[in-house]
Write a protein that binds this DNA or RNA. Structure first.
Length: 588
RNA sequence: GCCCCUGUAGUCUAAUGGUUAGGAUACAGCCCUGUCAAGGCUGUGAUUCGGGUUCGAACCCCGGCGGGGGCGCCA
């Protein structure tokens, strides 16, 4: 061993010991005679002192030390002179008086500083991620991730779950996200797909009777990135047999409760509140509402059904709705700030935003000339708005109204500082619709995935009114972020066939793509269901980071590049030839 | 595919049409025996690229390149 102790473990009990420490030179304080270095490793920092009167040769060697040199020191642990202790670090009562110094590796000046005092450009951090990971912030995040994963693993192990690996080289599926493809060398012209999730495999494990499955697993989706979306990400993937929705929910609540306790030291109340999808959309305009603050959406379709404002009337006639949120005290804000609110809703497809300042006897608004006194009274009554508030109305198709106002609500929650950042509000959103209409393809698509079971009492609408069918699907939401989603699956061949039919997947295509799964149902299929938690998002939220890149050791940038190693990269023609591939870089 | 923000020494940041482009930190040199973001003194070092407007551009406009946030997309 090149050390007897780590840099985090010496304390007053170690005084007098001869020790050897290895690590990075975090800082150097040269007083001309006495020289101090803070030696750092994963475990902490220990002050080492070089005294020229006792060890002159070693002291002059220490003159050459610079930040981030990797060294080994050998010396005696001594008590620091009284009054010079450092209470900020656990090793602060002692120091090592260095007798021998070995430099393993010098270091050039770093491209950026590691002390965390200033926020460094992310691109530069990514180019030198190995340096970035030396910072306290990243070390904490990486450790957080490990600890959280370990809590999950231990928890599921105790409950008899088996962790089972499923293939990374899988089969491309037609529905859902774009697949990352891997060309087959042996089968020219054929491709594996990296799994978007182990969905089918874990269901087949249930068919096999393995009963309780968990896997901490990488998944891949070739779609554009966001602060909370990486092309490869990690799921805590769970599947269980002979269970109902409540059972999955209870198991996951237990796991989450434990993570919160072990990692954050917080007791969260279980069971978590539940809300139907319909209620969430209605009240919050979102299927992942942030319940840490109010500002709920209020339907004014009735109250404003007889104004002289043509836009409202046209919208209402064509099946649209009028909804509002009340921004407390924002009536007094500037025109510029009101314009900003327009910009927020525009992004989500709303054509306009009506802003009504509430005054004593009426509205001050660009549309007040279309409103009568009774409108003022009824709107104020319904919304509970006070003088000085700002009522914000979007009139449009229900989907656009909900999304744009829902996002405006989130914007205002932040802007008006209505969010208690110390809160961790978990919420189950249940009874998701089974399908959603796809305007481009002009057909119904699975909201969750095509193996999700419909709620029994809605099965009768499956063929005639697919939009009305609710499903046994549920999402776990934390502070307005979706951190998991799951469902009770179909375990019956006939129902699965009806589902594919409703999705417009032909029998032959279903057979070609999912035949092995359909066949499996012939041989005894248990009722089963599961869930997948987005580990990266969950860890990021708990670590209080805005981007999941901060909790991934080597993430991709916005353009899906690994900027450090330079991926993706060209490959040579020989590799392509072996794979029977040919480049065609013509843009369509 | 689209929208928005952004680019000043190694790093972070100031300068809103006229500055010797300022500061912090890092780096280099000198001084210093109790510091711990050590301190003091001195020094090196910058406007992403191309074009335009202007007497004059870091600053305004157009385009390229780089980075970020978002819409679409993400069952």
């Amino acid at each position: 061993m090149l050390r007897t102790h780590t840099c985090g473990e010496l304390n007053s009990k170690s005084i007098g010991k001869q020790v050897e420490l290895s690590g990075w030179v975090s800082t150097r304080r040269d007083h001309g005679k006495l020289t101090f270095i803070d030696l750092r490793d994963r475990y902490g920092i220990t002050q080492c002192v070089f005294n020229p009167e006792k060890h002159n040769k070693t002291h002059s060697l220490a003159k050459d030390l610079r930040s981030e040199f990797v060294v080994k020191v050998n010396g005696k642990v001594q008590k620091r002179p009284s009054g010079t202790e450092n209470k900020d670090i656990p090793t602060g009562d002692v120091e090592v008086e260095v007798e021998e110094l070995e430099i393993f590796s010098p270091a050039e000046p770093l491209p950026f500083e590691l002390d965390g005092r200033i926020e460094v450009n992310e691109d530069l951090r990514m180019k030198h991620r190995y340096l970035d990971l030396r910072t306290e912030r990243m070390k904490k995040n990486i450790e957080a991730r490990h600890r959280i994963v370990k809590v999950f693993r231990d928890y599921f192990d105790k409950l008899n779950f088996l962790e089972i690996e499923t293939p990374m080289l899988a089969k491309s599926t037609p529905e859902g996200a774009r697949d990352y493809l891997v060309p087959s060398r042996v089968h020219a012209g054929k491709f594996y797909a990296l799994p978007q999730s182990p969905q089918i495999y874990k269901q087949l494990l249930m068919l096999s009777g393995l009963d309780r499955y968990v896997q901490i697993v990488k998944c891949f989706r070739d779609e554009d990135l966001r602060a909370d979306r990486q092309p490869e990400f990690t799921q805590v993937d769970v599947e269980m047999s002979f269970i109902e929705q409540d059972d999955i929910i209870r198991v996951i609540e237990g796991a989450v409760e434990l993570v919160m306790k072990e990692y954050k030291g917080l007791s969260v109340k279980t069971p978590f509140p539940r809300m139907t999808y319909e209620e969430a959309m209605d009240r919050f305009g979102s299927d992942k509402p942030d319940t840490r603050f109010g500002l709920e959406l209020i339907d004014l379709s009735k109250e404003l059904s007889d104004t002289e404002f043509n836009i409202f009337n046209t919208v209402l006639k064509s099946g649209g709705v009028l909804k509002a949120i009340v921004a407390p005290g924002m009536g007094g804000h500037s025109r510029k700030e009101h314009d900003k609110l327009h910009d927020v809703v525009k992004v989500y497809g709303a054509k306009g935003l009506s802003t009504l300042r509430v005054e004593k006897t009426g509205f001050d608004s660009q549309i007040s000339k279309f409103l009568k006194e009774k409108h003022f009274k009824e709107v104020v009554k319904k919304t509970n708005a006070k003088e000085g508030d700002l009522i914000l109305i979007v009139a449009d198709k229900p989907g656009i109204v909900n999304t744009s106002l829902g996002e405006l609500r989130n914007y205002l929650g932040r802007k008006l500082e209505l969010i208690d950042k110390s809160k961790f509000n978990f919420l189950w959103v249940v009874d998701f619709p089974l399908f959603e209409w796809d305007d481009d393809d002009e057909r119904w698509k699975s909201m969750h995935h095509p193996f999700t079971s419909p709620i029994n009492e809605d099965v009768k609408y499956l063929e005639k009114e697919p939009g009305r069918v609710r499903s046994n699907a549920y999402d776990l939401v934390l502070n307005g972020s979706e951190i998991g989603g799951g469902s009770i699956r179909i375990h019956n061949r006939e129902m699965q066939q009806r589902m594919f039919k409703a999705l417009g997947i032909s029998e032959s295509e279903a057979q070609e793509k999912f035949g092995f799964m359909m066949d499996s149902f012939k041989y005894g299929a248990p009722p089963h269901g599961g869930i997948a938690l987005g580990l990266d998002r969950f860890v990021a939220l708990l670590a209080e980071e805005d981007s999941i890149r901060e909790v991934v050791a080597f993430p991709k940038n916005k353009a899906a590049e690994g900027v450090m190693e330079g991926s993706p990269s060209e490959v040579d023609d020989k590799q392509l030839k072996e794979l029977s591939l040919k480049k065609d870089l013509k843009k369509k």
